[in-house]
Design a protein around this nucleic acid. Sequence first.
DNA 1: CAAACGTATCAACATTTTTTGATCGGAGAG
DNA 2: CTCTCCGATCAAAAAATGTTGATACGTTTG
Lengths: 124, 124
Amino acid sequence: MPLASPSFAPAVRRFHALSDPTRLAILALLRDGECCVCDLQSALGAAQSRLSFHLRVLKDAGLVTDRKDGRWSWYQMVPHALESLHDSLDELTAAAPFRKAPPRVSQALPLLLPDAVQADGCCG
Amino acid sequence: MPLASPSFAPAVRRFHALSDPTRLAILALLRDGECCVCDLQSALGAAQSRLSFHLRVLKDAGLVTDRKDGRWSWYQMVPHALESLHDSLDELTAAAPFRKAPPRVSQALPLLLPDAVQADGCCG
DNA sequence: CAAACGTATCAACATTTTTTGATCGGAGAG
DNA sequence: CTCTCCGATCAAAAAATGTTGATACGTTTG
């Protein structure tokens, strides 16, 4: 079943990770450098367990990594993961990866929908 | 309160719209041109009311538009809306819009977090 | 007009996600 | 060793999201 294709999962997970204001705010803070949870806590005024929850979502999506030092956990962005979403977006619009050129031809959807959807008698 | 900033909403809504396999599949089909609901129905093997639901999510996010002709509703992508997500992603990584160059300087987050989060004593 | 069709919408339900408060474990300080 | 701090995890509750089947509405066809 196309829609259940396992290859959907990574993009879906990453887009989902970005679909929450708290998580976008966390990423915006991480943009300026590594943060520990208590940094985020004071910056965002959010409960600790809530931040741990959202950090885990981001981590499971591969958008951040963590590192322990003493009793602190330091989190940082994974820029490459964000870039892979550029590619996913480009596939949706059939543009070339990283928007280097606009060929605008109908092409496969390897990253997003490898074996999916290629409809037969559909659309105009 | 930064996190409740209304300006979060558009990006959050769009990322959320992309965080579902059915909706990604719909967009992938629309990539090749306008579709009516019944096209999507036969291509995806999904129930009609389910597709109407997801199409509304996509429409509310501004990722598709619809147009009525007789008893058909024709949907098409809004490429510009997808492009605005490129900009949002770039803001998260502090890269220049559309990846034209990598200045990598700390800058404001106008699209994503206009008045948000600018933390004081945070991070390394 | 009546029947068939394409689609939106609704209500009920199932599932998933998020929040909250509590507890636990590891690490360092006294 | 004991106390404090940082942060992960858990259970329960709350909220949001997705699915399903039924119904309603406008349009076309006969």
